Simulated assay, not measured.
Amino acid sequence: MDDKRISIKDLAKITGYSVATVSRVLNNKEGKFSEKTKEKVLAAIEETNYATNSIAKSLRVRKTNTIAVVIPDLSNSFFARLVQEIETLLFSRGFTLIICTTDREQEKEDQYLKMLEGKMVDGIIMISGNDDLASSNYFKGKPIVFIDRGIQDEENISIVGSNHYQGGKLAAQKLFDNKCKNIAFITQDKNLQINKEIFRGANELLTKQEIPLDNNIIVSAMPDDKFSKTGATTSTVTELIHKGRFNYDGAICTDDRVAVGAILALEKCGKVIPEDFKIIGYGNDPISKYFTPALTSIRQDYALLAKESVKELFYRIEEEVERVAHAITIPVSLVNRQTTI
């Protein structure tokens, strides 16, 4: 054969079969043709170097076997592990992944969503970032699953999220068991929905025990800069200690690197962890295991989050019908280390 692109009609002429039969072989529709027919078509494909035009095929079947994941920060170890798990699950189903990193910038997120609206992706997974989206119009008619976020009062979406309320209660219970009497809640943004849920769970448990939980310690740091989180927390806590305004014996932090910053400040000021002060982080970042003292943290099950998100997305893709708003909550767990006894 010459270098001219071979079409499916050419293959039909070469083999003597109909276009429909050749198409069934190409799409591996078993039971629709004999083994002899298959061998003859495959031989013709090898002889002519025929390759299906995936773009044209996508236009015909309106399917690209491509999923987009919109993520705020790939340097965050939890997000990175979550995306890796999603990619593995998608690959096992014959799907490829497009990763869109927003750096937690609303404008960048909007631009990606506009782009994806016009791209032939089969579905979208939105991972936690900004609580609110500028517009939900991007998702009309497009299968989508949110992880740890969502659009308020929006129908036809699925939300898969960790039980952050439970995480707050687990952290509070651990500090209560450690005899803490005055606990700080340290965060970068107490208005973020995830942090609100952590605080709600912790505060509910501690209120019953008549133990105060102060949520007024706000750390100013770039949300996607892990080093800035630690440094900014160290500065904030050090300043509060020097002003005599850090009279706590325990703390719940909404990020492990924030917790590490608090430990550095406390140790610099002569506190011994955990004898003088107990502290719990959130996220089970690798630093929590390798830092000294090793940090007690709340672990999110990224593997189960990925599994349920992919499962829910494929339900929406394969059923090809609108599904009512659906929420799946994944349990979290406490990993006890050296910062609590």
Rank of each mutant, 00 (worst) to 15 (best):
L264V: 14
M120Y: 15
S228W: 02
F95S: 03
Y315F: 05
R245I: 03
Q188I: 10
I263Y: 00
T207G: 02
R257N: 11
V310A: 01
C269K: 04
V25H: 14
Y315H: 09
L26K: 07
M1V: 09
I125R: 03
R316D: 00
E109C: 14
G129N: 02
T37Q: 08
D103W: 07
M115A: 08
V310N: 02
L42C: 04
P212N: 12
E322F: 15
V69L: 09
A262I: 05
K179V: 02
T101C: 07
K174F: 00
Q111I: 04
L206M: 10
I287L: 14
V121I: 14
M222E: 04
S309A: 13
A265C: 11
I252S: 08
R149D: 05
I287F: 03
A303L: 05
K307C: 09
S75N: 09
R257P: 01
R245S: 07
T207C: 04
V324M: 09
L205K: 15
I55V: 14
S23R: 00
L305I: 05
L304I: 12
P293Y: 11
R323H: 15
Y17T: 02
I211T: 03
I98K: 13
R62C: 05
T207S: 11
K32R: 06
M222D: 04
T339F: 05
G150Q: 08
Q166M: 07
D132I: 13
N156P: 15
I330D: 03
T48Y: 06
V310H: 02
L240W: 12
L116P: 10
I217W: 01
G281S: 06
S297A: 12
T296S: 14
K13A: 13
I186F: 06
K174G: 00
T102P: 15
E107N: 12
K9H: 10
E30S: 11
S135P: 14
S333L: 06
I147A: 03
